[in-house]
């Protein structure tokens, strides 16, 4: 049964990648690299893993997703639109005056956005808040937080890492989008964050490492995380920045730069 399911997800991810490229091209600014690297994981979350209802976005028992790396907003917006939270044609209003699709996610603009993010390093703590609320009020929802690898430079991430395991937030799963690049270059050159797996283990987390572009591995990891008791789980997802567009893959210059017309056309052709 999983083979068919995986095919459907791969097709959804392809559409989401096309939205990402189109939105950013149309906006004339934005962050294609980190949106494309996150696309498969977001597709898995919104189309398979999370319990949510686009027709009832404030459903109390919904699973929550918080995009701590807020600059990947186009990927989140595309996943929400494809899920039915708002019309797909609204995606092209990204970053335009009066749009609900702000450059970075604004939870006040529409339901489905669970947290206002954009200043690196804060989303994990916000997720801990949502997770503590669930425990306090005997709610069974799960909380998913996606952080970037560059965010591991932030002190607050480690404050949060320590407290999540202290409070035994086993309803919390973090996905670390390990694409290896940050604005100024390769993460290993800007700030040494390895050994990441050992660090998170030392902070009391269950650590799972996967290929972040293999739906089989992504789905298995989320299934596994649901069954971990007494501690939070982090999925270190090895990804490729700019995944799906040949000339953006592993190219740091597309961290925060839109494609020009030629690049846009080629990207759309490659994505089919």
């Amino acid at each position: 049964m999983r083979n068919n399911e995986i095919k459907t997800l791969e097709e959804k991810a392809r559409i989401i990648r096309k939205h990402i490229v189109e939105m950013i091209y149309n906006a004339g600014s934005g962050h294609p690299g980190g949106s494309l690297s996150a696309a498969d994981i977001l597709t898995a979350l919104y189309f398979k893993v999370m319990r949510h209802d686009p027709k009832n976005p404030r459903w109390e028992d919904r699973d929550r997703f918080i995009l701590s790396k807020g600059h990947a907003a186009p990927a989140l917006y595309a996943a929400l639109a494809e899920s039915g939270y708002f019309p797909v044609n609204e995606l092209l209003t990204l970053r335009k005056l009066g749009s609900r699709l702000q450059g970075h996610p604004d939870m006040r603009k529409f339901p489905g956005i669970e947290a206002s993010t954009g200043s690196e390093g804060q989303g994990l703590s916000i997720g801990i808040g949502a997770s503590l609320y669930a425990k306090l009020n005997r709610k069974l929802y799960r909380v998913y937080v996606m952080i970037g690898d560059g965010e591991n430079d932030c002190g607050q991430i480690w404050e949060a890492a320590m407290s999540a395991s202290h409070f035994k937030t086993d309803n919390l799963t973090v996905i670390l989008d390990r694409n290896g690049l940050q604005l100024d270059g390769a993460t290993r050159e800007i700030m040494g964050i390895e050994p990441l797996s050992d660090k998170w283990k030392a902070f009391g987390w269950k650590v799972i490492e996967i290929n972040g572009h293999s739906f089989r591995e992504i789905l298995n990891a989320f299934d596994h995380a649901k069954n971990v008791k007494g501690k939070p789980t982090i999925i270190i997802a090895h990804t490729v920045k700019g995944k799906g567009v040949s000339f953006m893959e592993g190219n740091v210059s597309f961290h925060g730069k839109p494609p020009n017309r030629e690049e846009y056309e080629q990207a759309m052709k490659e994505l089919g």
């Binding site: 703590s125 808040g129 669930a134 306090l136 002190g155 404050e159 409070f167």
Partner: peptide, 26 residues
């Protein structure tokens, strides 16, 4: 006791956790 959380000496973490709790309904 269930409604009181001591976050340790990590005020940045505390403020964002506060946001997560408030966003959920606390």
């Amino acid at each position: 006791p269930e409604h009181h959380f001591n976050i340790g000496i990590s005020e940045q973490n505390m403020m964002s956790i506060a946001a997560g709790l408030a966003g959920s309904g606390s």
